[in-house]
């Protein structure tokens, strides 16, 4: 596989995953904001913290109101991590990979792009938002399902899933980091509805039933964090993402540095989740380490397997007859 295509495939995987995860997050957060009475409400700026895009936001908007934040994260083309931008980028990468993917892959992403282009503005209204986000998620899942069932298990598949796993681990880490930071530091009188919020966090990962199979019906911060961070068998947990990443990398050449780093990161997760419990005291430090570890993994992937490592970028044009 061409190194250039490996890079594009990886980013395709990341962008599709980012689309789905962001849509899930916006959906869950909108529910939280509707359900929690004003005494226990969170601010819409929490979403900006999770997406690590507060700075960019305040360049164009003055207040973190619902309509501003949703607009920024859903359809603002100036925001590279908005759903609109992620879908465009996914489509752009797929456009350059059409010869490496099943034919339907391109049509699906093209369809998703048209869907966003036509419907994103409408979804700013609460009335249309849930259906829109649900459709976005299901279109991403259609793509993923098609990939699983029709893309040959070659390096194309490996880099696509590698991208998806890195993105998912990254998003989940950021979500849990902010959620734990905000929720666990609140005064007791504000925490009446917190378990409801933890439930929504599980829902954002489509994880409620899977969680209950392991932990029973009770929802509380420790087991939720423990499940989403370290559950071996749950595909959206950080641990599972990293395990998958590792086994994909084992098939790739020159993988020594990558494997060394990911082993360290995984053992850090394991040591954290002693006896199935998460230590709430130093969560913040733990999330910082994990976040940094994931960034490093991305850097290693880029320098080991991508074209930018051996050849410079180019931006010239020529006219065509």
């Amino acid at each position: 596989m061409l190194s250039r295509n490996a890079e594009r495939t990886y980013w395709l995987g990341r962008y599709v995953e980012r689309t789905e995860d962001t849509a899930r997050l916006l959906n869950a957060f909108t529910h939280v904001m509707m359900d929690i009475p004003s005494s226990g409400k969170l601010g819409w700026d929490v979403l900006l913290k999770i997406m690590a895009s507060e700075e960019l936001f305040y360049e164009s908007y003055d207040k973190a109101t619902e309509s501003n934040v949703i607009k920024f994260l859903l359809c603002d083309e100036e925001n590279p991590s908005s759903i609109r931008s992620a879908v465009k980028a996914a489509r752009e990468n797929a456009r350059t990979l059409r010869d490496r993917l099943p034919a339907e892959a391109w049509e699906m992403l093209n369809d998703l792009n048209l869907f966003l282009k036509k419907g994103a503005e409408e979804a700013l209204h609460q009335r249309n938002r849930f259906q829109f986000l649900k459709d976005t998620v299901s279109k991403c899942q259609r793509f993923n399902g098609m990939v699983r069932t029709t893309l040959s298990r070659t390096q194309v598949y490996e880099f696509l899933i590698l991208g998806a796993c890195i993105e998912r681990a990254d998003m989940t880490t950021r979500l849990l980091d902010v959620a734990a930071g905000v929720l666990l530091s609140r005064a007791d009188n504000l925490r009446t509805f917190d378990n409801h919020i933890w439930l929504e966090i599980l829902k954002a990962h489509n994880a409620v039933m899977m969680y209950r199979m392991v932990n029973g019906p009770m929802i509380s911060p420790k087991p939720v964090l423990s499940f989403l961070i370290g559950e071996d068998e749950f595909p959206r947990s950080i641990k599972h993402c990293l395990d998958s990443t590792k086994s994909l990398a084992e098939n790739l050449p020159r993988n020594e540095t990558f494997i060394k780093n990911i082993d360290a990161l995984i053992s850090n997760l394991d040591s954290y989740k002693q006896h199935g419990k998460v230590q709430l005291e130093d969560l913040s430090e733990f999330f910082d380490e994990t976040q940094q570890g994931i960034n490093e993994l991305h850097q290693i992937i880029a320098t080991t397997w991508f074209l930018s490592a051996v050849a410079p970028e180019q931006t010239q044009t020529q006219t065509e007859v």
Binding site: L2, R4, R95, R98, D99, L307
Partner: peptide, 16 residues
């Protein structure tokens, strides 16, 4: 891209 895809050829840029 279309032709590369239809022929089963590699689509490359100079730097590749």
């Amino acid at each position: 891209s279309f032709l590369a895809q239809e022929m089963g050829a590699q689509l490359v840029e100079g730097a590749d």
